[in-house]
């Protein structure tokens, strides 16, 4: 898999710092599952947290803690379901989706279906899968909020490039685009989005009331 579109470094840094909203973190995690270069970058960035933690002035621990902690250590450990089972990159995203659960597909217009992912909405960010039939032309649109799109299957392109599996697109209100799905195959994307799509043009304005994405 050749990935050409990666998240910007400020987003990877926010992921490493743990300050992204849950929806964006979910989509970034899915990209990381597919992209060794970004995994490696996040590890580098997490190291910033380590260095700053080491430099933090220690606080005095107020209460008698040793007893409680030691007791906790002695407690029999429930066999932790190990999250750390090694996973091949191509199944990692499926695993991630199955952990949170996926609703059934719903028709959204223009040959587009969507299915919600059970990541609770945080800071307005919803996470869903978007499936567009081969050759679909989405209407010209911008976003009232932020949108992260990760291609899982198939491909689409628009004015700003071509997006294949593993590629991530970050769009906000400044970006006005008209994606076209490849003719050969349907396209499935994982999307985190807040706000709504804003359609353009006469057809767009007529359709807007019916579009619930």
């Amino acid at each position: 898999m050749t990935i050409t579109h990666h998240p910007d470094d400020d987003v990877l840094a926010a992921y490493a710092a743990g300050t992204l909203d849950d929806g964006s973190a979910f989509v970034i995690a899915a990209h990381l599952a597919m992209c060794g270069a970004c995994r490696s970058a996040v590890r580098d960035f997490e190291c910033i947290g380590g260095v700053l933690l080491g430099e933090t002035e220690p606080s005095r621990l107020g209460r008698a803690h040793d007893g409680a902690v030691m007791q906790e250590l002695a407690a029999p450990q429930e066999l932790r379901r190990k999250l750390a089972v090694t996973t091949a990159p191509d199944t990692a995203v499926d695993n991630l989706i199955s952990i949170f659960g996926q609703s059934s597909w719903k028709w959204r217009g223009f040959g587009v279906h969507s299915a919600d992912i059970g990541v609770p909405v945080d800071n307005g960010m919803r996470v869903f899968l978007l499936k567009a039939a081969a050759g679909t032309r989405m209407p010209q649109h911008t976003h009232s909020g932020v949108e992260l799109t990760l291609v899982l299957k198939g491909a689409f392109q628009h004015e700003f490039g071509r997006f294949e599996p593993g590629d991530i697109e970050m769009a906000d209100g400044d970006i006005d685009h008209r994606p076209i799905v490849d003719a050969g195959s349907e396209c499935v994307c994982l999307v985190a989005m807040n706000g709504r799509l804003q359609l353009h043009g006469l057809v767009g304005r007529l359709l807007q009331p019916f579009v619930r994405i």
Partner: peptide, 22 residues
């Protein structure tokens, strides 16, 4: 409330096996 899901989202880094670029 959000902790357990965060752990799952961040577990990706530990669970994916290293491939080429890493």
């Amino acid at each position: 409330a959000r902790r357990s899901q965060r752990e799952k989202v961040y577990a990706v880094l530990e669970t994916v096996e290293p491939d080429g670029p890493e």
